[in-house]
Amino acid sequence: MDRLTVRIWRGDAAGGAFAAYEVAARENQTVLDVVSEIQREQEPALAYRFACRVGMCGSCAMEVNGRARWTCRTHVRRVARPGEALTLRPLPHLPVIRDLATDMAPFFDKWARAMGSFQPKDAPDGAVPEDFAVVPPGSKARREADAGIECIGCGVCHASCDVVAWNPDYLGPAALNRAWTLVNDVRDGAQAARLAAVSGDAGCHSCHSTQSCTERCPKGLDPSSAIAGLKRRLFWDALLGRRG
């Protein structure tokens, strides 16, 4: 049987280097299958992360041959020609814990900084509102929110974003996409504060619209358009003197 060479970055926050492994090259195998095989058969100390194996949880993202991807949904033959090696690194732009496992905390801290949590308008103290809010499914705001709501927070867009590389404080596509879904949530009562939080150099205004996030999102979402929406909203707010 043909062999597949896999180069895996091994190390921790202090640094590391690539180690090479060989596994059987099978007709149907995902990158995650390969990593699991190496961990079980050859390198029990190899650190990596996964949970669902079917593209629902978003925890297995790594850099595969130069691109951030979900390893569970990436067939080896899609990223490496026969005889070509696989090169795996931890997800870029995040601190490495060990080997292929990154610390996702800074990524989710940015969601918090972008006010990515729902703030009920009717019940600011967290109480249940008296009545259901009516949100017509066909309304413009609802459709804008729908477009970005399926994000599962895998960090692929954040890892693919040049602006994050240039400015580690930049909130990044996922957090800004999340903020845009909430800006379009008519039930939310924290619009002014949220728009202030996502504005400026660390926010949507640093985006160059190069759209790597949209290109690489495994869910097919379009954070680039969400960021453009935030910019548009803030532009007219600033021009017309509106505050949120």
Binding site: S199, G200, D201, G203, K231, F235, A238, L239
Partner: peptide
Amino acid sequence: MRGQLHLWVAQRL
């Protein structure tokens, strides 16, 4: 951050 927003708006205008 408002200053940064205004710089961005100025650049677009």
